[in-house]
Design a protein around this nucleic acid. Structure first.
Lengths: 243, 243
DNA sequence: ACAAAAGTGTTAGTGGTACACCCATGC
DNA sequence: GCATGGGTGTACCACTAACACTTTTGT
């Protein structure tokens, strides 16, 4: 995409980006059973990290994050929310950044802007797991799904960033229609419950959950789904459009 | 404080700050009757703005905000919370920034870093109104309290920033002990109720409020206060320390 | 005595919990 | 029939709403 090699210029301006500002995205998906997030692994470094990026000079912060998501997932119109800014001094570790660049075969120029201190804005995204084929970026070997409770050790403060994202997601569970973005168009009550359980990290009473969800009046009930299992077929639901 | 005139250097680095990153603070206070915030007016411009500032190269984002609050209020240990990052392109209006500097008697150098685009992190603070004597900064004529519903027209997107701060404060009312930071050590139930009402912007039923607050178990009740008014003297309360 | 504001009791409604029970399906 | 999982009815509990009532104080 970029015509210049961003590791071969000294200033952010030459590279076309704003200095000192980055974003990290925690991209949640749900495979029907478990909550997962996308993690990148950088070439030849054994470093695992959240997908992140920088803001172009003529681009809003939100657009920068959307651009990064589009490059990695192919999706547009993603549900996206800011949750925290990470601006401590401890997260400034130029050695790590240098390792990543060298691992990718780029030897950064003297005083390269990428080795400066960055303040990072944390975003979380909710996407439909089925409709995505994750793509690694230029510096990464892979970009794949990891269960939220089986993450590899992440670089810098990224483990804390994930924890904060999950915490915010929990707080927003009732306010925003989280399930709508993580589930396919039609789903069973059991699937919706599993989404809630994996976000909250605890079991929910089946009967209570069913009643409280229906009481919200945000679901449409459709004809039953015959699964071939030896038990009663569940109703299938979808979210009401106007909600 | 600063030895260099920050308007007379081209790069943020020379001034000792990070480029492109600012903060704006919405500082809430409560005078016993109404919710107020601190607003600065710049010299000779008729521009009203939120108190804001920049991040030094060797300073965390949180510390930068605390430093700014200390300079304006004299207070340390302020209750502080991030609420949103404002990173749109529309907020980049270098002409306004130039007016402010010229109004303050500073003629910025060519390509001054202060005329670049900034992404701003919004913080809100809760402080004890009585213990503060607001101080204007170098570029401001004044820094004073305005009722939240009688603000002057603010520059750029600052009106929206205030709205977002208030919205976040509302959402956090039950989660965080907001009253503790806005009220003096001891207060009546009526005062606490007025804080809640002015944040929510609506009246609350007196009896319900009293019962729900007491049910939380976070208040200590002290001897009654004789106000000299012709009615029953109210109890005085304080927040429990461990909460 | 009266007005004003504080504090409490009483009843009803709402929404979650716990448990029981019935229903549909494939073996 | 039976195991399995889905859906609903019922009794109970906690919290809030609405309203009435009593208490305390200064004039």
């Amino acid at each position: 995409m970029d015509k210049v090699d961003i590791t071969q210029v000294a200033t952010a301006k030459e590279a076309g980006y704003l200095a000192h500002i980055a974003y990290d995205s925690v991209i949640f998906g749900f495979d029907g059973k478990q909550l997962k997030i996308l993690i990148s692994e950088y070439h030849n470094t054994k470093l695992f990290a959240l997908p992140g990026g920088f803001v172009k000079i003529n681009e809003s912060l939100d657009d920068a994050v959307r651009r990064g998501l589009r490059e990695r997932t192919g999706l547009d119109n993603i549900y996206l929310e800011q949750f925290h800014v990470f601006g401590s001094l401890e997260r400034y570790i130029p050695e790590t950044m240098e390792m990543i660049m060298k691992g990718g075969g780029h030897n950064p120029v003297e005083d390269c802007w990428l080795l400066d201190r960055f303040i990072s804005v944390g975003y979380y995204a909710l996407i439909n797991y089925e409709s995505v084929n994750p793509q690694p970026d230029e510096l990464s070997d892979s970009c794949c799904w990891y269960n939220i409770d089986q993450l590899p050790t992440l670089m810098q403060d990224h483990t804390m960033i994930v924890a904060k994202a999950l915490e915010t997601l929990r707080d927003n569970l009732d306010k925003k229609l989280v399930g709508m973005n993580l589930l396919p168009e039609r789903f069973t009550m059991k699937e919706l419950q599993t989404v809630y359980e994996s976000i909250l990290g605890q079991e929910i009473r089946r009967t209570t959950f069913q009643r409280s969800m229906l009481a919200k009046g945000i679901l449409n009930r459709h004809e039953k789904q015959f699964s071939g299992k030896s038990h009663k077929a569940p109703f299938v639901y979808s979210f009401k459009k106007d909600a």
